[in-house]
């Protein structure tokens, strides 16, 4: 019944239908890497993918910072300061940014902490839990500070496309990416579109 016209958040629309090899980056924020595992589930189609794209920052390449990219895939929601920095880096370097999976789309499992008070959580976990003696809330500057609430990524930056699912299947990710690479507005019909 008509594709969702989601990307009305203005901004540039990249033409990804041309034959130039595109750069693609991926990251997992407050997620479980399940969506990345699903990406690997495209199996031998990975060979086709690497013929059409070069991987930039991604767990697959171990590149630590995102360079100028055509497509960014973000798994997971935003639960801490580092998530925000990574997401902003992706937004400023990727022409098209895609939310992949339930956590990126609506906060998912991590967001189930949103009805709890963060201060009380930290206190209970590190100070008052029964088996804790001389506990201390970790305060090393290397550790990212948690935000008071978990947010889906579209509440932090503009997002161009969404692939829901927990995780989206390899087939769904493949369908979406090939649509995008071929210059078609990506569509997920039955049974590829699911939220669980």
């Amino acid at each position: 019944m008509g594709a969702e016209r989601e990307p009305e958040r203005g901004a540039e629309r990249v033409v990804v239908g041309d034959k130039r090899k595109l750069r693609l980056a991926t990251a997992s924020l407050a997620g479980c890497f399940g969506c990345h595992m699903s990406l690997l589930d495209i199996d031998e189609r990975l060979f086709e993918l690497v013929e059409r794209v070069d991987f930039d920052r991604s767990p697959l390449t171990d590149i630590k910072h995102c360079g100028a990219c055509d497509i960014g895939l973000i798994e997971g929601g935003i639960c801490n300061a580092e998530n925000v920095h990574v997401l902003r880096e992706f937004r400023s370097h990727c022409k098209v940014l895609i939310a992949v999976g339930a956590c990126a789309v609506n906060g998912g499992l991590p967001a189930q902490r949103n009805h709890l008070d963060l201060g009380q959580c930290l206190q209970e976990i590190y100070l008052t839990a029964p088996d804790i003696v001389g506990g201390k809330i970790p305060n090393d500057p290397e550790l990212p500070l948690p935000l008071d609430k978990v947010h889906p990524i579209h509440e932090i930056v503009r997002i161009d496309y969404f692939i829901p699912g927990c995780p989206p299947s390899g087939d769904a990710i493949w369908k979406f990416l090939t649509d995008l690479l071929d210059g078609r507005t990506p569509r997920l019909g039955h049974p590829l579109l699911h939220f669980d």
Binding site: M1, G2, N106, I159
Partner: peptide, 20 residues
């Protein structure tokens, strides 16, 4: 959920209310 599939709703679009 089924209607969201039928109407190809890919994201919640708005900011979540996360009611308690």
């Amino acid at each position: 959920q089924a209607l969201a599939y039928e109407l190809e709703m890919l994201s919640p679009h708005f900011d979540q209310f996360y009611p308690n």
